[in-house]
Amino acid sequence: MRQPRLASLIERRLLVNYRIVPDAVGPLLPQPLRPHLVHGHAVAGICLLRLGHLRPAWAPAASGLRSENAAHRIAVEWDGPDGVQTGVYIPRRDSASRLNAWAGGRLFPGAHGRADFHVHETPGRIHVALATRDGDTRVAVTAEPAGELHGSRLFADLAEASRFFRSGAKGFSPADGDRLDGIELHTGTWHMEACRIHSAQSSYFDDPERFPPGTATLDSALIMRDVPAHWRSLPDTTPGLSTTPVG
């Protein structure tokens, strides 16, 4: 089924980033995806996303929905017809929205689980916690905006980090069989700010069976706020990863 192009306002997109030993990430990726390395590290993390006015692109903004969402992501690359392409693999998506959970994988790409969110947010401080309904995943992050990016071993500065994440606009999620659901973020406005992390816990990245001690290290956080965005589905993809946008 042809899936509609979606429009939204990214009210808040908090990216909490981990640097990962590449050998720990490889087994988590379907072929032909491989880790996108930065200074010898794989890059993974959590996207804590509040969307407003989410709707088909032809519909008025007032008809759109608002929801809290989370995605666990791994930066990836693969060989395309025009050379190496980059994006993210998303092994898990969760949403507070019952509609998003129903529609994910049906009306738009990427199956979503249900999660309960607790959010307290001011201009100077962000706290987002979630627990998935299936009991598998818990996340709690507290951060504050900062003028510069400090302490990261992945990125030399905010500009380098911003370029990296802008290049990863294509996201792929597991679907039926060896198929991947794909979606691509489009925005004419791209502005990221650095964050200082006060605390961050993730049962996904803290799991010693998935990431043995020392293989996953909290690195940095970035935030986007009030950014208009469109989301386009990518064609049903097999491991060949055709990525021509549709819609």
Rank of each mutant, 00 (worst) to 15 (best):
A62M: 11
A70P: 00
P81N: 06
S63D: 05
G83L: 12
T86L: 06
I74W: 01
V76D: 03
W78F: 15
G80P: 11
A59F: 15
W58Y: 10
D79A: 15
G87L: 02
A61M: 11
E68M: 12
L54A: 03
H53C: 01
D82C: 11
R93S: 07
V84M: 12
S63E: 08
L51E: 03
A62P: 00
A61Q: 11
W58Q: 04
L48W: 12
G83C: 14
P60S: 08
R66W: 07
H72D: 04
G80L: 05
D82E: 12
R73M: 12
I90C: 02
L49I: 13
Q85C: 11
P81L: 14
G52C: 05
A75S: 14
V88N: 05
W78V: 07
L65F: 13
S63K: 04
R66H: 14
A75K: 08
A57M: 04
L48G: 08
A75Y: 06
L51D: 00
L48P: 01
H72K: 12
I74R: 01
I74H: 02
E68H: 13
G87S: 01
S63C: 11
P56K: 02
A61V: 03
S67D: 10
R73D: 01
Y89L: 04
Y89A: 03
Y89F: 14
S63L: 15
A59R: 08
L48M: 12
G64E: 03
G64A: 07
T86K: 10
P91A: 07
A59D: 06
R92I: 12
L48H: 09
D82W: 10
R55L: 02
Q85V: 08
A61I: 07
H53I: 00
W78E: 04
P81A: 14
L54F: 06
R66T: 14
G64M: 04
Y89D: 06
A57F: 14
D79W: 09
I90E: 00
R55A: 02
D82Q: 15
A70R: 00
L51H: 07
L49V: 14
R73A: 09
L48Q: 06
R93D: 01
G80T: 07
G83E: 12
D82I: 10
Q85M: 13
L48E: 08
P60W: 00
R66F: 05
R50F: 10
L54E: 03
G64S: 07
A75W: 06
I90S: 00
L48D: 07
D94P: 04
Y89C: 02
R66Y: 06
A57G: 03
Q85P: 04
G64N: 02
V84P: 03
D79C: 09
H53G: 01
P81D: 11
G87W: 07
R73Q: 13
V84G: 06
S67E: 11
L49M: 05
V76H: 03
P56V: 00
D94N: 08
T86A: 11
R66P: 03
P56E: 04
R50P: 08
A75I: 11
G83T: 09
V88D: 03
L49E: 00
P60Q: 01
P56H: 03
Q85N: 13
L48C: 05
D82S: 15
N69M: 04
L49P: 00
G64K: 04
H72Y: 15
G52A: 11
V76G: 06
G64Q: 01
R66N: 11
E77A: 09
R50V: 13
A59Q: 10
A59H: 09
R66C: 05
